[in-house]
Design a protein around this nucleic acid. Structure first.
Lengths: 99, 99
DNA sequence: TGGCTATTTGGCTAAATTACCAAGCATGGA
DNA sequence: TCCATGCTTGGTAATTTAGCCAAATAGCCA
């Protein structure tokens, strides 16, 4: 498959977006993320696995815990991109409603 | 679902990314896109429908044809975002191989 | 009107995705 | 060593997505 699409696909899930956003604040271990996400640990672990495979995050095993962190600060510029799209779409929607 | 994730999901398909990239060059009708994509017309039509629903493209019916165009120039900054991620990941991969 | 082209929509199947539970594996402390 | 904790992996069921074919719709022109 297309390399671009593979990256985008990895980002295309609310939980994974949330995790990236959270890791942007600093590293977090799986149990912290699990608590924040509110899903089963195994589910969160699999999301992290996908993000790691895509090269977006990296893990650091320290004792019994595994700390994840962003590997790409650029993953953040992604959010501004998405929001720019969302704002533009919302603006256009408003304009059309006013017509 | 999360609004951000919904947008990203819409972009998370090679054909849809291709279409956006192509529309960035200018408007195209469904049959032109279909020929370029090389899938069934109905398949392409459905991809376009998803992109339209997400507010990323707009359609303009002219005679028997329907011309699609970008609704958001910002959809393009998206590509530079993706590529930035890809390059960073590739670079890191190379560095690790050299270690 | 009839036929042809362009496009969308419905239906169906196959494939991919997601989430949970259970089981397995380390690590660290008692 | 034994047990609890933290995490990952395998299995499975439910849901979503993708693609094609067939059918329906709309515009154009003879």
């Amino acid at each position: 498959m297309d390399a671009q699409a593979r990256v985008v696909k990895t980002l295309a899930h609310p939980t994974r977006l949330f995790i990236l956003e959270e890791l942007a604040r600093g590293e977090r271990c799986v149990c912290e993320l699990t608590e924040m996400v509110g899903a089963d640990v195994s589910t969160v672990s699999k999301h992290l696995s996908l993000l790691r495979t895509a090269g977006l995050v990296q893990d650091d095993k320290r004792g019994a815990q595994v700390y994840y962190s962003l590997r790409c600060a650029c993953a953040l510029s992604f959010f501004s991109c998405i929001d720019e799209v969302l704002q533009t779409v919302a603006r256009q929607h408003t304009e059309e409603t006013l017509k």
